[in-house]
Write a protein that binds this DNA or RNA. Structure first.
Lengths: 110, 110
DNA sequence: CTTGTACTTAACGTATTTGTTAAGTACGAT
DNA sequence: ATCGTACTTAACAAATACGTTAAGTACAAG
């Protein structure tokens, strides 16, 4: 597992099973069993996916009797979106400058 | 390597070196050598990171004589952001409903 | 205090990732 | 032709990821 938070977040999102779990949890908290039921794998496998999500800060887990309540946590997603949008903006800005440059050259060539 | 596009995108972004490369390329296209120079690893290593980025559709590579021009491509990032924001919205909506519910209960208990 | 439920941890196998160095390959220039 | 430049591909090693089954652990209930 990577050390920096952003890598952890993206790595967590890189697995389809984990994204499915997050989709489910965005609709409301759930126990491990509830999450595992529709998934085509064993309970221990799901248990470890949840650990990865917890490590990325994307869920928070709390004990309730013999159940574990898993709750969605959106903060790391914000940083991921920020990173992406920053690159997008840098790229768009470059395209805009290029566009302006081409326009100005065209204007000076009648 | 994962098969679905979203997993490829997130997996590509999960590596700090690849994010650094993308940051550099968002400012403008570059050759493999230019990208490799500041990085603490061999050229073949960088070459393969670029292959991963290409596989995710995040860059497009073209030959120019003996150089390879690597150009940023933002489209896959849009889908990644969409996925994230959809979950965010689902979660926010849930919190809003919960909030409304609590308010209404408070209103009926004078 | 034993039993059932709901997990987690351990032990294990296999595949993928990420780096290395050494050996190609492709092209321009002499 | 052959030489240098700019990569890519191959072969390898080590670490990480992701699944399995079997063996804990923790709590509630009878």
């Amino acid at each position: 597992m990577p050390v920096d938070p952003l890598s952890r977040t993206f790595a967590a999102l890189a697995d389809p099973t984990r994204r499915e779990i997050l989709t489910r949890l965005a609709a409301g908290a759930a126990t491990v069993g509830e999450l595992a039921h529709p998934l085509p794998m064993s309970l221990p496998a799901v248990s470890r996916h949840l650990k990865v999500l917890e490590g990325a800060g994307l869920i928070v887990r709390t004990r309730e009797a013999q159940w574990r309540r898993n709750e969605f946590h959106a903060e790391p997603l914000d940083e991921a979106v920020d990173w992406i949008l920053t690159r997008r903006r840098t790229w768009e800005a470059r395209l805009d400058r290029l566009d302006a440059h081409l326009r100005s050259r065209k204007g000076t060539q009648p």
